[in-house]
Computed example of a mutant assay.
Amino acid sequence: MGSLATATVGATLVCGALAVAGVHAYATGKAQRQALIERLSDAPHLPPAVGRRRFARLDRRLRRTRLGRSLELRLAATGLDVTPGEFFVYTAGTALGLWLVASALLAAFFGPIAALVAVWGAFAFLNWQRQKRIEKFINQLPELSRILANATQAGLALRTALSMAAEELEAPAGEELAKVADKLAVGHSIDEALGELARRLPSRELVVLVTTLILANRAGGTVVSSLRNLTQTLEERKETRREVRTQLSQVTVTAYVVPLMGVGTLLLMDRIASGSLDRMTSSFWGQTAVVVAFALYGVGFFLIRRMSKIDV
């Protein structure tokens, strides 16, 4: 009994000591984290809201899901200062607001349709912003290739050349190359850093440049001549893309005008005969006609955009 009591007391003391050490470590870590957040908030090169983003708890939960990770990657490609949690809340709030407005101004049947259009519009805006950023990045690729060629010809390593290009180029190329340089600084390989850049901003031109740099890094040879030729090719593709985009601008506008004309017709009809939308959507056939009409407008928009999409 005496030995059992001694072992019990000893185990209790050890558990108590571990508990005290755990509480002390937790308190110390929390204090250090708070001090780090305060230093980052006071830094002149960072915005004052660092570490105090809205909907932080929802954002952490959302990032653990597959949808959240995909949304985070898409937001990173757009360059917007918005977290997945903020985007989710803003989109949900906008959809709810349009639901109420459409139900009050048009008819109750149009509420869910307006909410779906709001969600589609939010993701369409992300795709547009992403494509816009990709276009800007593609326009900077000839200059990027030229800087890398000059730096390589001067005897600089590829890592140093990428860091120098990140400092000299403007956004978005400068920001994206800064991310690549940061990953290289913490131990990532050139293949991983450049591969993530190609996944974040997918384009044929960037894939060619990334492939050239990765192969040159693996082979260990000079890439000056390859980058010189690539610079000239990128300049020619840039001019060709500009001409194609100018020729197809009218078709692109038509794709957006046609659905807007349909919505405007509905609003005009309800303005001329007040309550006509309520009467039309109160029956099954009226609701079916509205759904079919919106579906046809959507198919027309998709087909026009598809036919006007030419990969150069």
Score class of each variant (00 low, 15 high):
19 A>H: 02
19 A>W: 09
20 V>H: 01
20 V>E: 02
21 A>N: 04
21 A>L: 15
21 A>S: 07
21 A>W: 08
26 Y>I: 13
29 G>T: 10
30 K>E: 10
35 A>S: 12
35 A>W: 00
37 I>R: 13
38 E>G: 13
40 L>V: 02
41 S>T: 11
41 S>H: 09
42 D>T: 07
42 D>A: 14
44 P>E: 06
45 H>W: 05
46 L>I: 13
46 L>A: 10
47 P>M: 06
47 P>G: 15
49 A>Q: 07
49 A>M: 03
51 G>A: 01
51 G>N: 02
52 R>L: 06
53 R>S: 07
54 R>D: 09
54 R>K: 11
54 R>W: 03
55 F>N: 08
55 F>R: 04
57 R>I: 04
57 R>Y: 00
57 R>V: 09
58 L>Y: 07
60 R>K: 11
62 L>F: 02
63 R>A: 10
66 R>S: 08
67 L>S: 05
68 G>P: 07
69 R>G: 06
70 S>I: 01
70 S>L: 11
71 L>N: 02
72 E>Y: 01
72 E>T: 06
74 R>K: 09
74 R>F: 03
74 R>T: 05
74 R>I: 02
75 L>G: 03
75 L>W: 02
76 A>W: 01
78 T>Y: 03
79 G>C: 08
79 G>T: 09
80 L>C: 04
80 L>P: 00
81 D>H: 05
82 V>I: 13
83 T>D: 03
83 T>H: 03
83 T>R: 04
84 P>L: 06
86 E>K: 06
87 F>A: 08
89 V>S: 05
92 A>D: 04
96 L>S: 10
98 L>G: 01
101 V>S: 09
102 A>L: 13
102 A>K: 11
103 S>Y: 00
104 A>R: 15
106 L>M: 14
108 A>G: 15
108 A>C: 11
109 F>N: 07
